[in-house]
Amino acid sequence: MSLVEVKDLFYEYRERDENGEVDIVTTALEGVSVNVEKGDFIAIIGSNGSGKSTFAKHLNAILKPTGGTVIVRSLDTSLEENTLEIRKTAGMVFQNPDNQIIGSIIEEDVAFGLENLGVPTDEMKKRVKESLKTVGMWEYASGSPNRLSGGQKQRVAIAGIVAMKPEVMILDESTAMLDPRGRKEVLDAVEELNKEEGMTVILITHYMDEAARAHKIFVLHEGQVKMSGTPEEVFKRHKELKEYKLKVPVAAELAVRLREKGIPVREGITNDDELVQEISRIRSEHGTGI
């Protein structure tokens, strides 16, 4: 049994038009199936409006399927009585760093979820400290979140989730509003959690270079999973990605251009390191004979 099992998920919602009369039924998700194993690092990528955020909100029972099932650690999200247990299991970090911090003091904010779960004060103190240390924010513990950078705020939000000891962490476009340094801070923290603590991670993003760090990528477009596979497998199909309004990382695109020019660069380049290695390999193997 996988940790998260999404099977043939449909989500439809009704909208009224401006006059409040005719209903328009919009299908945001159309038969999405995704399995996530314990310890996985999954990226869900898609353009704005592809349904990726709607998908994310199903994983911790914020939204309920209108068709199909979402099972988190053998709990069905459509059953009301499972909600609290699911939210303990699947923690979610949102997009806007300002709108998810509740406390005016950083350590108190991290404790918020633990207070809700009724964790005893002594245990709480220990967990708050541990989780703030994990994301490298312990030195700011007694300060105000207002003075932090976007990346630091998101790390505080991550600490707030980590403290609750969930089995899977979902990042719902949590880097979209950050500058490059903030994005890197957050991604590094998440990657470390995955590697060191074995935390299962589901990263929702439209940045390809972030997705490249995952073990497996799902490409969502118009509510459907259009591609899935390792970063190498997905980036190979760069033309298709373009159709889905996405873009491969610079290294992957340069590799394609070079292949077009007849340079035998291998397929499946995802990052700078791989490309630089590949080009120097070609030089040493072929010399001038290309």
Binding site: G91, G113, V119, T121
Partner: peptide, 18 residues
């Protein structure tokens, strides 16, 4: 949403950090 996601369900059974 963020409060829901962090299991907020009112004051019942809540402990205090401070």
């Amino acid at each position: 949403l963020a409060m829901d996601a962090r299991c907020y369900h009112g004051g019942e059974g809540r402990t205090k950090y401070k």
